[in-house]
């Protein structure tokens, strides 16, 4: 098997028909949505409905990803991955057969395009959503693995973050199946490639950092120090330093812990008149501003009452 030739294997045009060998469903190709090392994803229609269809030369990849998607449906209320609709084979010619699976089509811009469009205020919101989904996934015994902006789609009128590629999703305790260097703690020398919740939390922090630095940067050998520099040098990232750095160090045990820390940070961030003023310096300034006001008010009142009393006494005397 030569991997370099894998990408160009499928070149299905609009209108091509894919027939399922086992379940006899018919899909019509609309367009290509994306291609990776493990296959191509197409937008297709089935009975007038839009679906996403992933087809691969490697039947094992399909089976493996279907296994993950199936177990997702067992996770109560999980919206992290797309829901699985069908698995089948396509008899391409008498000698070649390709496996494919069909899933819900999640429509929307990817994380970066969304933030570019709607503004950076969305970064923490979407991260909070992602972390609650990760919490559910981890509780169910899985680790997502290949978290990256390209795999994250923001969808719906009430924007919600969703993951579209579950190829890296691994059972807890095993070795991560698939990863991308920039988001991989092993690459940065900050941990193992064992599937643990902390692995996903590291990647989440890197996704966050990548939102602020649109172009990925390479390691310079300093490990954590380099990443901390990047966090501290960026206005928005610096605000979330208290979340990002512990996440990079693997100090949050669960996604929920990280979510709580992020919530606390955004709360501080959103207090009125909060922009640019740090809370500790704001507190005393309000005191000094408030007290003299009260004092002068009291003095004026006392003088005023004193005057009236004086005039009353004066008028009594006269």
């Amino acid at each position: 098997m030569t991997m370099s030739t894998m990408k160009s294997q499928f070149n299905l045009q609009k209108g091509a028909i894919i027939n399922g060998k086992w379940h006899h469903k018919q899909y019509r190709i609309e367009k290509e949505l994306g291609a990776g090392a493990n296959g191509v994803v197409y937008l297709a229609t089935y009975l007038e409905q839009l679906v996403a269809l992933k087809i691969s030369e490697n039947g094992y990849t399909v089976t493996s990803e279907v296994n993950v998607l199936k177990s997702f449906t067992k996770v109560q209320g999980s919206t992290l991955g797309p829901s699985l609709l069908d698995v089948d084979d396509w008899q391409f010619s008498s000698s070649t057969m390709y496996s494919f699976y069909v899933m819900e089509y999640i429509h929307g811009p990817d994380l970066h395009s969304f933030i570019k469009q709607k503004g950076e205020a969305w970064i923490p919101v979407l991260m909070l959503q992602l972390l609650s989904d990760l919490e559910e996934l981890h509780k169910a015994g899985w680790v997502f693995g290949d978290l990256k902006p390209e795999n994250l789609i923001v969808t719906g009128r009430a924007p919600r973050i969703r993951c579209i590629d579950v190829g890296g999703t691994t059972l807890k305790g095993r070795a991560i199946k698939e990863f991308t260097e920039f988001y991989d703690r092993g690459y940065w020398g900050l941990g193992s490639r064992k599937a643990e919740p902390t692995y996903d939390l590291f990647s989440s922090a890197m996704v966050f950092i990548h939102c602020a630095y649109p172009s990925r940067f390479s390691k310079d050998g300093r490990g954590l120090e380099q990443l901390m520099d990047r966090v501290k040098k960026h206005k928005i990232l610096k605000t979330y330093e208290g979340v990002l750095i512990p996440a990079l160090q693997g100090r949050f045990k669960t996604a929920e812990d990280m979510r709580q820390a992020l919530l606390a940070c955004s709360y501080k961030q959103n207090r009125p008149k909060g922009t640019g003023v740090s809370p500790p310096s704001r507190q005393p300034s309000r005191k000094t501003k408030g007290k003299p006001n009260g004092k002068t008010g009291a003095i004026v009142l006392i003088l005023f009452i004193g005057c009236i009393y004086f005039f009353y006494l004066y008028s009594q005397m006269v």
């Binding site: 086992w22 039947g59 094992y60 089976t63 493996s64 279907v66 296994n67 199936k70 698995v87 089948d88 084979d89 057969m97 496996s99 059972l171 095993r174 070795a175």
Partner: peptide, 22 residues
């Protein structure tokens, strides 16, 4: 071979491969 099994049953075989790989 595995390709001759219906897709529903392949999942279990794949689990075995994954387990071995680990």
């Amino acid at each position: 071979t595995i390709e001759d099994l219906p897709p529903e049953q392949r999942g279990e075989v794949m689990e075995v491969v994954d387990e071995l790989g680990e």
